[in-house]
């Protein structure tokens, strides 16, 4: 019975599933190099699954790409070269972190742009404080503090 279940399971295990655990034999023997490979892999998108890096996906193509990353690292190529190699074949789409270009300028500049607009708007509020009533006297402060404490 037990063997039957195992057999059944093994038969169906060939269904490709995203988000699965992979085999350890594709890992590099050198832990430092393997870590470097994982870092590169996490920047590259799995082209078959949605919104996953090739490190996380167990799709066959992702597996092949992982293998290529490791092969090229062993050949002594730099992470930059490997990413360029991938982009040459699969286009900008493969980068999970788009490179800065005219097309992605708005995306990358959004934080600064948004902060600048906000500060520009707030500056007017701050400016207005110049015409605000004079700051409270220490006596008024004391009264206000006691009132606030009561609250």
């Amino acid at each position: 019975m037990k063997r039957l279940i195992f057999a059944l399971l093994l038969l169906l295990f060939s269904i490709p599933a995203c988000l699965a655990v992979d085999t350890p034999d594709e890992m590099l023997p050198d832990p430092a190099l393997e870590q470097k490979a994982q870092q590169i892999g996490q920047q590259l998108r799995c082209l078959v699954c949605q919104n996953e890096s090739i490190e996380e996906s167990s799709a066959p193509l992702a597996k092949d790409l992982r293998h290529i990353v490791r092969l090229q690292l062993q050949q002594g190529r730099s992470p930059k070269d490997i990413e360029a190699w991938m982009v040459q074949r699969y286009g900008e789409f493969i980068r999970l972190r788009p490179s800065f270009s005219a097309v992605t300028a708005l995306l990358w500049l959004m934080p600064i742009l948004s902060l600048m607009v906000a500060l520009l708007l707030v500056r007017r509020l701050w400016h207005r404080s110049a015409s605000a009533p004079a700051p409270l006297t220490p006596e008024e402060h004391r009264i206000l503090d006691s009132l606030l404490k009561k609250d």
């Binding site: 066959p60 193509l61 092949d64 790409l65 290529i68 699969y90």
Partner: peptide, 12 residues
Amino acid sequence: EGQAAIDWGVTG
């Protein structure tokens, strides 16, 4: 091995 297909940028 599917290596040439990768050079061609094949995704499926």
